[in-house]
């Protein structure tokens, strides 16, 4: 019990961020018309590509010469970039078509 309380005490900022973000995520998407479900899913897909920042940090800390780690890190950054760039571009393509006829 005490361990849990201590942990909560030490990470209270993060816990706040998590709880508030959950509500925010639900609120933000709650009023979306079904027309926009696919672009929204695709946009959200691009946003979770933010995981690439973790990959960059990992990569930037590897000591030169650790080739196995470098290669895995390289792969992680490539995949993360694919997620981010591909996600935003494909979302833009979908939304471009929505705009045209208005």
């Amino acid at each position: 019990m005490e361990a849990i309380l201590n942990w909560a005490q030490a990470h209270i900022d993060i816990i706040y961020i998590v709880v508030l973000s959950i509500f925010l995520g639900i609120e933000v998407i709650g009023r979306v018309p079904s027309v926009l479900h696919t672009p929204l899913m695709s946009g959200a897909n691009a946003i979770h590509g933010v995981v690439i920042i973790g990959a960059i940090i990992v990569m930037g800390k590897v000591e030169p010469g650790h080739y196995v780690t470098l290669v895995i890190g390289f792969l992680a950054v490539v995949l993360g970039t694919l997620n981010v760039v591909g996600g935003f571009v494909v979302t833009d393509r979908m939304l471009e078509m929505f705009k045209k006829k208005k």
């Binding site: 961020i17 998590v18 973000s21 959950i22 509500f23 925010l24 995520g25 639900i26 933000v28 998407i29 929204l40 959200a44 897909n45 946003i47 979770h48 933010v50 995981v51």
Partner: peptide, 9 residues
């Protein structure tokens, strides 16, 4: 924030 937002949404 990015991860949790997408997770919740």
């Amino acid at each position: 924030t990015g991860g949790i937002l997408v997770g919740a949404a």
